[in-house]
Design a protein around this nucleic acid. Sequence first.
DNA 1: CATCTGACGTTTT
DNA 2: GAAAACGCCAGAT
Length: 115
Amino acid sequence: MAESFSQKVYDVVRRIPEGKVATYGQVAALAGAPRSARFVGFALHSNPEPGVIPCHRVVFRDGSLAPGFAFGGPDVQRELLENEGVIFIPPSEQSRESAGADGWRVDLSRCQWDA
DNA sequence: CATCTGACGTTTT
DNA sequence: GAAAACGCCAGAT
């Protein structure tokens, strides 16, 4: 493959429909590296096309976002996704599981991108 | 039998 | 050469 793995990630993430989210593993698999979910985030960190690559639509397999990484504010991200139609669940609704940004998780059961 | 914790695997910058 | 935006599998409790 001539293009870098990261380049393919941008293409996949860019294909995520509005109102839906994809997990790093999902994007990684579509990019051709099902074992490199970690670097999907790395590639997005590179973010060669800001405003074009909706990194906020890419979440953990648990439905939580990356802790420590916020494009401008973790609160903004939750509102941004919710504004697109993504269903968010407050930490109070959950019994356990690890919380990422604010403990809020995306309802992958209803909003995970159906590639 | 079900659930949780720990270790490892992968590629890029 | 090392570190880094996770995911999946295995073993133990």
